[in-house]
Design a protein around this nucleic acid. Structure first.
Lengths: 232, 232
DNA sequence: TAAATAGTGTCTATTAGACACTATTAA
DNA sequence: TTAATAGTGTCTAATAGACACTATTTA
């Protein structure tokens, strides 16, 4: 005897994070309809079984539809589910985190979304507070042993900018030498295209960022790099 | 205009792991029906929206039904989904990992499930190979900075047994002193009930395990302990 | 040459880990 | 006392991190 059960609703929610002067910020909008009308919520939507070819696909589609953004970093975090999280019934939400550099927001972001500091969040719809918490924890955690913070910067960045990004994520400052030795960075006289860090993902470019001082070399990271030991 | 989409099927799969002399082993059974009839597969089943109160609940129910086991450690790992992973259509599988000590298996395990070494797996149904890989990676990873391996041992264990468990998970042996300093263990003259490790979760009991030599104190861990830095 | 930031060698305090020592039991 | 395993102090090599020095640009 095989019984069939009512299928739960399945949606994808995205915790879109960026780094501003105030620290990590999350994109939220006010829900236009029920349930939770008027409450702050994450971008998200149901799976389209006729079009989506994967969960990540669904997350990218949702994000593009609702915010106009195509994040360079997107990662599945955790799945939230249960009979009570949505008043409409048993539901499943696969939660993703997306990282976007601040400078990409000015250009693309719809004016429906606003950014709120992840420390000291207002009340959110559904279990979205828990989703933000889980995403931030993942980002802080993974940043301690990887080059994840690179994805919070423009495609080309100086090592000092990268250092400030790490410092902002963790809320702790270090000396330049300490920072560089933690990432295993040796700039030396590398050619453009060579990697300078322990993980081998920080690629030197030929560009320098000038100013009224010695120009700083610009770097780029095409993929995530992991360190042998947590350094933060 | 709101369109409704066909809902995907939602199931929970469990990667049940234990530690034997050969290393980490995973519980698999041969599927009695289509699809993938006769292929090796993980225990799993659909969400019962009328009874399950959470995903973990569904995972525990599935595991108890199919193997008779109630694992002390159960953790969500990753959600697998797509239109192709199951020939019946768009499906979502939330994958859990469960750890069970070898001695609990003799008592409870149904004879439907057999254990296979996670290194050198045979071909599995659906995307279960990927699920096993993800679970094993999670366990190895988390073991490097936590007391996760405690859950592969009986409730009371000696420090030497715990050391052998870590060594088996990582396939590397260390000296007793190194092992103890990594976990920050100081047994000293602790009273029963006091913690002896850096994470504060290895609790001394009043029991000792004898033999033809100095008896070893038995310890217990009620919760997962995290270390400041990865030690393995 | 002064100001400002980039990049790095050196020195020290800390730590990880191997070794060897002591401890405690049964035979 | 011997055998066997438990538990730990000590010494050394490796490492993390602060400091201070050099480098390179504009004004």
């Amino acid at each position: 005897m095989t019984k069939t059960y009512g299928k739960p609703d399945v949606s994808v929610d995205v915790v879109l994070l960026t780094l501003a002067e105030q620290g990590l910020m999350v994109a939220l909008h006010r829900r236009p309809g029920e349930p939770y009308r008027g409450a702050l919520a994450l971008p998200g939507g149901y799976i389209h079984t006729d079009r989506d070819t994967s969960l990540e696909d669904a997350a990218r589609r949702t994000l593009l539809d609702k915010t106009g953004l195509a994040p360079r970093y997107l990662e599945q975090v955790q799945t939230f589910a249960g009979p009570l999280r949505d008043p409409r019934g048993w539901s499943v939400a696969i939660s993703y985190v997306a990282l976007v550099p601040l400078d990409e927001l000015a250009a693309a972001s719809s004016d429906v979304f606003e950014f709120y500091s992840v420390d000291g969040l207002p009340e959110l719809a559904f279990d979205h507070t828990g989703q933000v918490r889980a995403a931030v924890e993942r980002v802080r955690n993974k940043s301690s042993y990887s080059t994840l913070p690179c994805w919070l910067l423009p495609e080309k960045f100086t090592l000092t900018q990268l250092q400030h990004t790490y410092e902002a994520v963790f809320g702790e400052t270090v000396t330049r030498a300490t920072f560089r030795s933690r990432l295993g960075i040796k700039v030396g006289d590398v050619q453009a295209g060579e990697a300078v860090d322990e993980a081998g993902v920080l690629i030197a470019t030929d560009d320098y960022q000038g100013g009224n001082q010695r120009p700083a070399r610009l770097f780029r990271a095409d993929r995530l790099g992991l360190f042998k030991r947590a350094s933060w």
